[in-house]
Amino acid sequence: MMRVQLTVNGERHEVEVEPRLLLVHLLRDVLRLTGTHIGCDTTHCGACTVLLEDRPVKSCTVFAVQANGKRLMTVEGLERNGTLHPIQEGFVQEHGLQCGYCTPGMMMTSYAFLKRTPNPSEDEIRHAISGNLCRCTGYVNIVKAVQYAAARLQEGGA
């Protein structure tokens, strides 16, 4: 077992883990942050996307021990004091989800993308979310949700 210290959504945690424990299992099973989903479990779908030091990564393809000393953000970190983040608001307003399974990963990727690209084109949005699979929406409303969030953030929404 190994001792791992990490910060998730601003909160510090110290846990003992087996080296083979995947980050997604640490988040869901140990820290009980079940907003992060497990989809394909084979590095394809992006449902398990979280931010590791501000970069979106697939938490099914990172060992928990690799997060030692690192800063993470999960979908639970988007909402502040009962107020949805503009990216969450965008998915609600633009109907950016149907079954909702891909949504946490989709939102984490979009959140990180808009930090770097505040005023994106549709092509840039589609390129950015190309590692996150959605089997319901056809992506059209997801793109609109990201555009909604971009506009809200530009006008100082969060």
């Binding site: 590095t43 992006g46 996307t49 970069r55 979106p56 697939k58 190309s130 996150n132």
Partner: peptide, 9 residues
């Protein structure tokens, strides 16, 4: 190479 999430690592 793969997809944008994979490319971050």
């Amino acid at each position: 190479v793969a997809d944008p999430l994979v490319r971050n690592l």
